[in-house]
Design a protein around this nucleic acid. Structure first.
Lengths: 191, 191
DNA sequence: TTCATTTGATAACAAATGTTATCGTCTGCC
DNA sequence: GGCAGACGATAACATTTGTTATCAAATGAA
């Protein structure tokens, strides 16, 4: 799982083995809840195989805010970093193979990493990138119609359209399941 | 402008004076463009007095994505950090008193600050906070109606409602000016 | 002051989107 | 193989939101 990064990170053999040793492999079926709303997130997951969604309940409606696939790391970021009760659920969509690491061990790694300028800067870059991604998604809500957002999704994140049940995608795009179905149908018949 | 921070930052007198010396004070009228779309952002602004909006043109429509007030710093963040052509305009709304600093000097400060763990961590915290803010704004688009978003704005960012012309607020909330006017009217007549 | 411009409210109509209900298909499971 | 539940399409209707146009009030500049 992690060997692909081995030669890209300036870490001693000793540190590398220590860090990799923190991770635990698990296999879980589809629809497994990895974190409950209200719980304080203690685990960060990395996906070897499968996919995961982050969702929350709003007045009885199941609203999905994010999707994750192979090689991405997943947590309720605010809960994990700041020890707040999680506002969201984290749940597998497909049967998945995951590696998880405890928050204490992440903290250890981050503290040590900050002393290595190259990795520290990479961490900061990652945080910037995450902000840019959210900005982009937010922009699409003030400038595009739902139909346009769906088309962008097909182009920019085809995995979502291909692997995720449609009713989860609907709330992610901010529309009802019925309307998303209409959008798809219209796209088909126009071409 | 900056003396309020003097005793809160672990900096030598020498460094402090050097950093403060990087800043330039300007006074500008309302509707002054501080950064054009397509331009590469070289200046970071701090607002002493006044307010600023960030906006972009989409198919001839003027869409506002952010507002800034006293003591906030403003730039086209992606352009400033990564030297990309800015996707947005930056423009004053009110006559304003601003302090600006050149990107080169910001880079100098950031590089030096990273060696001070307390400030380095504060920088990282700031980046997290910015991401959380965007997440929250994004959530409101998938869970709330425009009317609810407007009410939240009144509660959480009253400055915007009080100081910003309404047609800028409309696009920020993702609705037409006519519809925002309807929302206000409905709120009034219900109470 | 006076006039042009900006800003905001409102009406009338068009278009987009939500809601509820029904139906068919598919899938996993026994 | 058969069944229950999940998933998605579609129709009919209700509601929300956008568009265009008009008018009034506020604002700013000469």
């Amino acid at each position: 799982m992690f060997s692909q990064f081995r030669d890209k990170l300036p870490l001693s053999e000793e540190k590398w083995n220590k860090y990799v040793g923190y991770f635990n492999r698990i296999e879980v079926p589809a629809k497994t809840t990895l974190l409950e709303e209200g719980e304080i997130s203690k685990k960060l997951f990395v996906i070897e195989k499968g996919c995961i969604r982050v969702w929350f309940n709003h007045n009885g409606k199941d609203l999905t805010s994010q999707f994750f696939f192979e090689n991405q790391s997943v947590a309720s970021i605010e809960s994990f970093m700041k020890k707040f009760p999680s506002p969201v659920f984290v749940e597998t969509i497909e049967p998945s193979v995951l590696w998880w690491i405890h928050k204490n061990d992440v903290d250890t790694i981050i503290e040590e990493i900050k002393e290595i300028p190259e990795l520290r800067d990479r961490l900061i870059d990652m945080l910037f990138q995450r902000t840019f991604d959210y900005m982009k998604h937010f922009f699409s809500f003030i400038k595009d119609s739902p139909a346009k957002r769906y088309q962008s999704l097909i182009e920019e994140k085809p995995q979502i359209v291909q692997r995720v049940p449609q009713h989860y995608i609907a709330s992610y795009l901010g529309v009802s399941t019925v309307h998303l179905s209409r959008i798809k149908s219209k796209l088909l018949h126009e071409k």
